[in-house]
Amino acid sequence: MFVINCPYCGERDQSEFSCGGEAHIVRPKQPTELSDDEWAEYLFMRKNIKGVQFERWNHTHGCRKWFNMVRDTSNDKIHAVYKMGEKPPVI
């Protein structure tokens, strides 16, 4: 449990948010040309990092906007929050 600084609303309790998992997974440009292996990679395979991870969050019970977050999954410390489309910070 932690407090998230929503880039649109400011600091709110984590229970207002939902996590959308690993960030920066690129949607396939030509889905019809993907092999089964590539589909599996895109749909299911995850880094599931213990440590600093880039992930997507949604302020579900607030502004309902998506944004990105850099969080250490080993201690839930948040390193950075940035809007969708912005360049990921170097951590």
């Binding site: 998992g21 599996a40 299911f44 395979m45 995850r46 880094k47 599931n48 990092i49 213990k50 999954t73």
Partner: peptide, 18 residues
Amino acid sequence: GHSSVIANMAGLKLPLES
């Protein structure tokens, strides 16, 4: 819960979230 951590050591990705 640490399966992915070990998998990463072998250069493998798993369909898991911890």
